[in-house]
Amino acid sequence: MNMPDTPGNAFTKTGAKTVAIRAEGLTKGFGEGETYTRAVSDVSFEAYHGEILFVVGPSGSGKTTMLSMVSGILRPDAGSVSIEGQDIWSLSTDQLAHFRLNTIGFVFQDFHLFPRLTTAENVAIPLIIKRHPWDEAMSEARRFLEIVGLANRADVPPVKLSGGEQQRVAIARALIAQPDLLVLDEPTASLDGDTGRNIISFVRSQVLNDKRCILIITHDSRIFEFADRILNMEDGRVTGIEDGGSHVAHEGV
């Protein structure tokens, strides 16, 4: 993926921070006629390299819809999304798939790990899609499993792992292609309090780096302390952006 490097097109300087994501006027509705519901209305925000941005709000506030548009899996009715200077919604379907593969890592709420594959094979999937040789992909997957602390679980199926371990496998899968943007959907929803905090702490300390931006959708106020900023949503609108509680130094992958 060629990234434009002209000022104002990509790394827009905002003080010491550089813009990783710029969303402008995002609007999305579902249904037609009387059943039409506007899920997201005119949402604009910026996210920066080296920060964790939490997106919070009650159920139905439009968090997931908004983040889906930002991460290139739901086309907005109006507005634009620029990631690393690339207007993602100007890309064709296949170009967008390649963009997601190379630029965005997803950690789904239900993990969506393949139960019939080993943990290492699950982690290797993005590299395999990128046509890396099998052995190289598996070797890299084992390296990332080691990073997330699961080196000894590489050859077991994910169903034999605990929820927290599965979450870490999903994170390893999201990271293996070295994405600039990491999107986590409710990463602590199915985990107990301590495990959830450990996961986000791990993301904060080991995954975040100066070239990466992490977006996390969550309801879980217990982990707000790990956010750099918190974007509040309600009824499809951004109601405010505030600083989070994080001042933790980090060294990323």
């Binding site: 899996i73 997601r100 593969l101 997803f106 969506h112 393949f114 999937i125 993005p126 899968r173």
Partner: peptide, 11 residues
């Protein structure tokens, strides 16, 4: 899972 592969970037 196939949907997840799509999201990850499989065409």
């Amino acid at each position: 899972k196939f949907g997840a592969l799509k999201a990850i970037g499989m065409t």
